[in-house]
Design a binder for these strands. Structure first.
Lengths: 355, 355
DNA sequence: CTGAAAGCGCTTACAG
DNA sequence: CTGAAAGCGCTTACAG
């Protein structure tokens, strides 16, 4: 590849001038500009990216990081991003939004293990102007190590209080959450309003922001209504389909079911429907189901799912806007942006009033 | 951020030695190594990425490029990657596979217009070791400009003959296609075997490899069976749902329908079902539908779709393997790899034998 | 085994 | 308006 030195030589100017033309500096006469531009076009010259960055130019790149501990054992890599509603859609939205706004996107999936600390390393390499991180545990302290690197980043789904309390001074950090506590409250109240009193809960991972918050909401409402929270109606699904299936089968065998389940995502709800169905239990006639996400199947399953829409696209947009603000603020401003976005109940056919 | 010079100073060695330790050169005594490593850890030092690349080190990054001309007018950016089965899943798979194998992935969506030529520029910036490109027209000549840059790349879905004929010498290029011609043949033969003779075709874009090939297959079989290809049964859907809907409505209004349609993707097939349904026409009783992709809804629609599975994941894996081979071959080998992967007919409920 | 020096390809004060 | 020079942070022959 040709470099600026040669371009300069051919155009009969110095490298400084070539640089000035490329970077659109004002004090280059039109004539010189055209002369240089002509050579650039002719030789298809493109300034070397690394050299530019090394001189302190921006990378124009957003780092997108998906932290995904691997439940099937540490040997299996692959997240199956493309089968995961939350990760897949967030990454896709983030890429799309970044690109549409003139930023490159560098995507990196962290397959846990040593991975999370590797996050710090990647930030220290200075490959991007700012990062967006999803999939971290709600209180993963790696965040503070990353903050110390100095590059701005925004978190999607993380504990707000814990973050703000422990963030080092002068951190450039953003946070985007969904209103999972409120959704948990609303889900429980909705079921109660339908006459349900025996309400079960199929959880995701409790290290996870959303699961934790929804569970809190559930507990608060159950207690407020003096409803018993029965241990046997709690299923630790951990967002894993085989686990959900296994534990649910146990419960069915044990003989007693709640009249409704709050399920921490649509995928587990879909499995729940199937397992119940194959045991002769009807949804929603025998058991009601309310879940979260509103994934692409929610509308098409039988019955269709009553679920809370996770505003993935809107959250991604917000995260992108914050990171850009943080990047542009440069060294002159430190601020922490926090947004919490509403989830919407989409009422379909998996819930029914209890007789 | 601390740099190698300071690390060297603190550790009491030269930058050369720091570099040797980092890059695991063999001729560093254990003791020196440990001394340096200790300082590196203590100060959380990470070699600057751009500086490394500028010295000729690899970027360890795969560039992933999605070319998506924007049908809704040039002002609308956003591809809605996450709603697009083909693009979304391919990108996700590519990211996943790259990351799992130790490569970063730099993703860039090209929103056409000036975009395609911008592709050449990005390749010239030397930000990644090799690229994978999807979404290009089956004969987009930009490929040859990119090839001239010298970085290896692999194309997904491109005209093989045209590519091989026009590629400059010493190109490091790969190509991964699916057997769309064969699928087109098989789809048509299948419908004929069910007794259909009036077969319509709802096309994607003809500049697109898959549409073109499937159409060729369709034509060949229809001719071989001396079946009439009726112009009025051809709908140019262009992969656009509103267009498919509009043209189909025209056709319905005109009064005469084929007994079966070959539809160039599941999304258009789903729309077709809806439009027919709302006009009192039943699938598959009145009209059979066979499509391509096997997207996540294909199984759940009513009726479920008989469709050809596009092996997105397998194709992505293949593309990744090729690009790695090409990268590792370095300057010493030039070779063009071409693979064409089978599509599988998944027989469900949208086709029926004609009485 | 190890350090001094050159070089990768840019940009940016600085001087004129 | 424009060029020579220094500098960004590494790596890598080269010499010892």
């Amino acid at each position: 590849m040709i470099n600026s030195k040669e371009i300069a030589k051919i155009a009969g100017v110095s490298r400084s001038t070539v640089s000035r033309v490329i970077n659109n500096y004002p004090n280059v006469p039109q004539k010189t500009k055209e002369k240089v531009l002509k050579v650039i076009r002719e030789y298809n010259y493109r300034p070397n990216f690394s050299a530019k960055v090394l001189c302190g130019k921006k990378t124009n790149t957003i780092g997108i990081f998906v932290v995904s501990l691997n439940p099937q054992g540490e040997n299996t890599f692959k997240v199956n991003l493309f089968q995961n509603f939350y990760f897949g859609n967030t990454v896709d939205a983030l890429i799309d939004i970044s690109n549409a706004n003139g930023y490159y996107s560098l995507v990196q999936i962290i397959y846990k293990k040593d991975g999370v600390s590797k996050l710090v390393d990647i930030f220290a390499e200075n490959r991007f102007d700012g990062g967006i991180i999803i999939g971290l545990d709600r209180k993963d302290p790696v965040v503070f190590d990353i903050a110390r690197v100095g590059l701005p980043f925004v978190l999607i789904h993380y504990d707000e209080e814990y973050l703000l309390k422990n963030l080092p001074e002068k951190s450039k950090v953003g946070l985007v959450n969904s209103m999972d506590y409120e959704a948990g409250v609303q889900a429980t109240e909705y079921l109660i309003s339908l006459g349900h009193r025996d309400i079960g809960f199929i959880s995701g991972r409790f290290t996870n922001y959303s699961t934790y918050e929804r569970w809190r909401g559930f507990l608060d409402v159950m207690r407020k209504n003096s409803l018993e929270i029965r241990k046997e109606f709690f299923i630790r699904g951990d967002y894993l389909l085989y686990k959900t299936e296994m534990e649910l089968k146990h419960l069915i065998k044990a003989g007693k079911l709640p009249t409704a389940f709050i399920v921490c995502n649509d995928d587990m709800a879909l499995v729940t429907i199937n397992v119940l169905k194959s045991n002769g239990i009807k949804v929603p006639d025998d058991v009601s189901l309310i879940s979260f996400d509103n994934n692409s199947l929610a509308e098409f399953s039988t019955p269709s799912l009553t679920t809370f829409k996770l505003p993935v696209y809107e959250m991604s947009e917000r995260a992108f806007n914050i990171i850009v603000k943080l990047i542009e603020a440069g060294k002159y401003q430190e601020k922490t942006f926090v947004y919490t976005m509403p989830m919407t109940l989409i009422s379909r056919n998996s819930c029914k009033a209890v007789r």
